[in-house]
Amino acid sequence: MEQNELFKQLTKKSVASKKDIFGKYLSLSALILIGITVVAILFFVISRGLTTFTLDKINPFRFLFGTDWQPNNVDKNNNPLVGALPMIFGSFVITLLSALVAAPFAIGTAIFMTEVSNQRGAKIMQSVIELLVGIPSVVYGFIGLTVIVPFVRNTFGGSGFGILSGIIVLFVMILPTITSMSIDALNNVPKIYRESAYSIGATPWQTIYKVVLRSAIPGILTAIVFGLSRAFGEALAVQMVVGNSPVIPQNALSPAATLTSVLTQGIGNTTEGSLQNDVLWSLAMILLLMSLVFNLIIRKIGKKGEMKNNV
């Protein structure tokens, strides 16, 4: 009799364990929802993006490497002029150059904040950086339009709309991203590395560039790739200053277009189901795939850094 009671007590679920199960299912369902969303987006963009090649019978090779982008016109063989190379090229050039320019500034700022300045200076800089991250991209674009474009026009000539203006605007936009991630990377370098370097006779500067920076390389590379990926996906601000002319740019001043700028411009002006609309989906697919590539690179670098730093 008594044993039976004990058995009942033990097999009956307590309130706490019921709550535990409830929590588990709650978080699991959130996870599933997000999973479905991601899969749906991937499926949707890729299936629409592939329509260009399946239904509209566009040669993928000509799409990727063609240099003529006039989706409304056809060439003399009646093939639509949908060469996406100018935008792919524009996206890569502007992204890479802006990250290349931003990286040294970001790393320098990060070194100053973690290694050189006192706590108060670092705190002020920290809030400046957070402010920069929070500014909406349309504001950056607007400043680019009213300040950068005239500046480029007056200094270097041309219309002012073009690659250079795009690079400058993106440079400012990704600077805080790379900086704050570089700061994390530098802060993650164990304090003992610094003390060890000092105790062998390294000067503060030698400690920074021979030990701290070197140990933080994986983290800093991750920061740069994050910056790249942000720059690659940025649409609005770039579109406002880049000139939006889908041709391969001749020099830094020539107007150009990026994948994102063509997308934002065109997606509202085409009818769904038409070739003009389908090719935009193909551009979106390229963007999506590139983001995936960037993420893979970040993961790879991150893993390498973990292995190196597991003290």
Partner: peptide, 29 residues
């Protein structure tokens, strides 16, 4: 001073470099 008076800490803390570079660190400064 710190070249003449060396210091070893509690936590083994080689830099994440090669063995040679670790030992040569003070010399290359």
């Amino acid at each position: 001073l710190r070249t003449n008076i060396g210091m070893v800490f509690q936590q083994p803390s080689p830099f994440p470099f090669s063995i040679f570079e670790n030992v040569a660190f003070g010399l290359k400064l």
